[in-house]
Amino acid sequence: MTDTSDSASETTDLRDRDPEARARALQSLLTEKGLLSADAVDDVIGTYEEEIGPQIGAKVVARAWTDPEFEERLLDDGIAAVAELDVQVDDEVMELRVVENSPDTHNLIVCTLCSCYPWAVLGLPPTWYKTPAYRSRAVDEPRALLREEFDTEIPDDVSLEVWDSNSEIRYMVLPQRPPGTEGASEDELRELVTRNAMIGVERLA
């Protein structure tokens, strides 16, 4: 048997070690080389634990529901429209395409080849999104997947369109505004928007 990567076999003994120790070891070596500081490690972790997450996407969706001109810009150039809002996103971080649910179309996001995800607006993906179980099934039997795993029923007369994010273009779903929310403020609407609705595994009641 041949190995396509020399280093894959070289690291075999490292793999027997505790990942915690290996991560610290690599961090200490990169730190000594001036590539990474302890502060930057804390900042990266803090950013994805506190600052960048589905709350950014929720803000975007609530604005789109209340401002048709913003919605138009969002559907035209996702990240540029997001960067207009008071959020920690710069308009060059990624190309973002927002796909809009309607009474007759439901959209679903997946990355079958790895775990591509619109992290600038939703944060880092939840565990289930990265599993072969989700990635394999989302493209061929998404209705059964949504029903069995998320209690989400997509009616037969609603078309289901799946977006497999295989390039550096990232996708986010713009869910439909729930009925009965006509009088709600943008802040109140934001509270209704979930991460799963922006991936498309959930419909907002």
Partner: peptide
């Protein structure tokens, strides 16, 4: 939605 994406402290370190 507000859970940390890292289940263990070292996972965040790996991401960094």
């Amino acid at each position: 939605d507000d859970a940390s994406p890292f289940h263990e402290e070292w996972e965040g370190r790996v991401y960094a």
